[in-house]
Structure formats: structure tokens, C-alpha cells
Design a protein around this nucleic acid. Sequence first.
DNA 1: CCTACAAGCTCTAGCGACTAGAGGATCAAG
DNA 2: CTTGATCCTCTAGTCGCTAGAGCTTGTAGG
Lengths: 151, 151
Amino acid sequence: MAFSIGILSRRAGVKVPTIRYYEQVGLMPSPPRTDGQQRRYGDAEVARLNFIRHARELGFEVDAIRELLAMSAQPEESCADVDRLARRHLAEVEQRIARLIALRTELQRMVTECGHGRVGECRVIQVLADHGECDHDHGGARPGSTGFAEA
Amino acid sequence: MAFSIGILSRRAGVKVPTIRYYEQVGLMPSPPRTDGQQRRYGDAEVARLNFIRHARELGFEVDAIRELLAMSAQPEESCADVDRLARRHLAEVEQRIARLIALRTELQRMVTECGHGRVGECRVIQVLADHGECDHDHGGARPGSTGFAEA
DNA sequence: CCTACAAGCTCTAGCGACTAGAGGATCAAG
DNA sequence: CTTGATCCTCTAGTCGCTAGAGCTTGTAGG
């Protein structure tokens, strides 16, 4: 019935160090330990970890997941808050998509205009060197929000 | 002719600590200093910093920008490498867009199916809890590559 | 010339969500 | 009882900055 962190890792598809990290940041509980201080888990933890993994795959931040977990523990409450959280996240994803599409457009323009000659005449370099060469105002968002990812 | 880091900051639209950071990681040169160790810049640095800023806005990583800068200093060379770098980056942006669109689809499905009742019947929570509820295989990429951004 | 004070300097630490590695303990099978 | 896979804690690194402490310098006004 009680199993190790390695087994939990395989059952939920989350790496062992990541599970320990989740415990550290309060997403996963501190489980009971063996006499030798090794963690022992049950099926409830597999379910919880699957929930966390799926939410992460959908791009929810750890803070948001903490809230979602707290809410899902109150099944009699209204799900308005859950809904709000999900909608806010959806809106963020949509913003990110819009931003990336603008970047894609400009990158496409850059590479299609490159005449494959020398660096001195390269459109890619020219556009980068001279902001005036591009239509978009892609530097308009908050500083550091270029819409780029960790991977 | 020679101006301070604050002036450079305003002319290029890059914050002062960020300029110092770029110097540290080798994107910007170590400029000459006054007797009191303050950095002095010229117009060449404004141009270089604009190049860097624009490349960052387009989502190029610092390593890629270092390469782009090195290439742009060799105007007689073929721009094939420049082209390759830009195309690779474009491909990454396209992958990210595809991934985010898949996420958006699923998030939309979740929120539209939510009946605004209790948490216990909430579609959002149900989908998160049970991976089988969703069509997509959005957990298939390399670990940690959910396509999410820093902002 | 002197005094404010804005702006510069270096250094360290923090963000988010992990990942990697050291160095050692424990568990389960044979 | 031994082997070796797995577990433990701890620290540090990733990326591209950002924030703050605590001190020094440059410059403009009086």
C-alpha cells in the first residue's frame, strides 16, 4: 500500500527531484517516513501529483496550482473562483500567442528577404541593426515580456 | 562625444543595470572609464545596444545574439550562418505557437464546459484531476517544455 | 570654491521551476 | 551478508534580468 518516491515518480510521470521540490514549495504534503527517513506514499498522492502535472502541462503556475488544489478540496463551494483562475490563464495564453505571432511575422519577413549573399547586405542583420526597418512595435509590452519560454 | 551609462540607457532604451549585465556576459564591451571608474560610451555603443535590444525583442537568446554580433562584424562573409540562426529561431517560435494553441484549445474547452455550479462538478477541476478527460497529448514534449514564458 | 544630490560604482541575492551533482545512508533481493 | 539500486540532504546552477545595500563620483547652482 505504501510505496517509495521512485514508484510515485513512475506512476505519476514526475521526476523524483521534482516531487521533492513540490514538497518543498508546499504543493505536495510531507509524507510519513520509514525508520530510515525514506518517504512513503499512497494512492492519494498519485492522484494529487497527476493533478499537479496536468495543471503544469497546461501552463498554470505553481501559485495558481496551489489555489486550484485548495479549491478542489472544497467540493461544496461555488466553482466561480476556479472558473476565474482558468479564464485568466486562458487570457494570458492568448496574449502570448498574439505576441509570438507578431514575432513570427517579422522573423518570416526577415528570412524571406535575405538574399543569401554577404553579411553586409543581409536583411536579417539590417533589420536587427535598425529598428526603423520594421513595422511592428513589438517592444511595447512590459519590460522583459517578450513572450518566450523556458525550453 | 563620450557619455555616461545613464545617457546610453536613455538613447538605446535599455535599463542601466541591464547594460552592466550585458557587459558582464560579453554582449557589450568594457568601455573606457573616467578617473573615478565611471563608464564612458560613444555612438557605436548606442548602435550595438539597439541591435541587442531589437534581437531580444525578437526573442533571440543571449548566446544567439553573441553569434549575430560576431557575424555582423564580418560583412564580407556569406550570410548563410545568419540565415540559419534566424530560421532555427523562427522554427522554435512556430513550435511554441503550435504548443500554445493546443493549450488554448483545451483551456477553452475546460472553461466553456464549466457549468458554474459547485467545485465538485466543475469541469475544470475534473479535467485537471483526470488526464484521460482530455484528447491532447500535451505532455509529450521534452520535460519542462510547456511553452510558457517569463512574463 | 563648495556643497548638494543625482547618478554612478560593486557586490550580493532573488525571481520561477526546476535540474545536476556530491557524498553518504538505506532497502530489498539473492 | 553482500551488492547495488534507490534513497537522503544539501548546495549550486540554469536564464535574463531586477532589486537593494552601501559607498563614491560628477556636475550644476550659489
